[in-house]
Amino acid sequence: MPLLSVDGLSVAFPGHAAVREASFSLAAGETLALVGESGCGKSVTAFSVMRLLPPNARVVSGRILLEGADLLALSESEMREVRGAQVSLIQQEPMTSLNPVLSIGLQIAEVIRRHEKLSRKAARARAVELLDLVSIPDAHRRIDDYPHNLSGGMRQRVMIAMAVACRPKLLIADEPTTALDVTTQAQVLDLLDDLRHRLGMAVLLITHDLGVVAQWADRIAVMYAGRIVEQAGIEPFFAAPLHPYSRGLLGARVDVDADEHYSTHRLTEIPGNVGSAAGQAGCSFAPRCPVAQPACRQAVPPLVGLGDERAVACPVTVSSHSSPLLGGEAR
């Protein structure tokens, strides 16, 4: 049984559907990257798992099973037992996701005392250990610091310490490094990966950075306009992306090894924009797709499994999957 299995999840805001029929699963200890451009429903999907959607959003249908138990069926107080203890969250912007007027020690100890029956003193000692764990130097002195005393990378480390405090089974990281500079980004992701191995957590990594995905994820799920269009293991995906959108995404990367640079080559892009998906019948990507057939605009293509944990929602690709052409076209 997978640790987390999201089944046919649809989430709607008034007037538009943010997530449509999304299904994916996550095994214990695995890192799944949820990839897509801004506004494609990645964060909404993640927040649905914690049931922390904005007040005007609504889960229309679907199930979210954590070790077989449907999170959407839990009462609010049962859900509070899950949050922070079994599933925890790291947000994008570490400055605003820590409370500026409370010391970091208090903010870490708070979650420990919520889920474990520890004294104030014991929780504080645990908080120091956690700061040590996330490699914050002088943890016992830093514990009374406030978020504004720390740098961006340090703040994100504090967020990580807070998230792993109760040894959750699943950690949701919503673009954890977008707000950080590149060197700090690598350090934070290394730390996350190290903790994942040490604590045996699964990580749902939300990002739009394919470089991050290639280095730190086990599997990838690509989202476009609220739907998951492709799922694959990291190596097969980067070797041969199947969905035309995934191929576009990879094609749009600058390949430094091949001596490409924006000053010498025109950068490749996916023609059109995501706005064309609104109100589109059939496949949302059809208006931008180089291989679209008339049939693509008729019915929504289902996510078809191709074996080896690989699935793609594109009838054109599926029908020609056996052809050697696809693998060659990837680069």
């Binding site: 927040f47 914690m50 922390l52 859900m79 509070r80 037992e81 899950v82 949050r83 922070g84 203890a85 925890s88 969250l89 947000q91 996701s97 820590l98 409370n99 708070e110 979650v111 919520r114 889920h115 967020m159 807070m162």
Partner: peptide, 8 residues
């Protein structure tokens, strides 16, 4: 949201 995600 962080506070809510802690289950407080």
């Amino acid at each position: 949201r962080t506070a809510k995600a802690k289950g407080l």
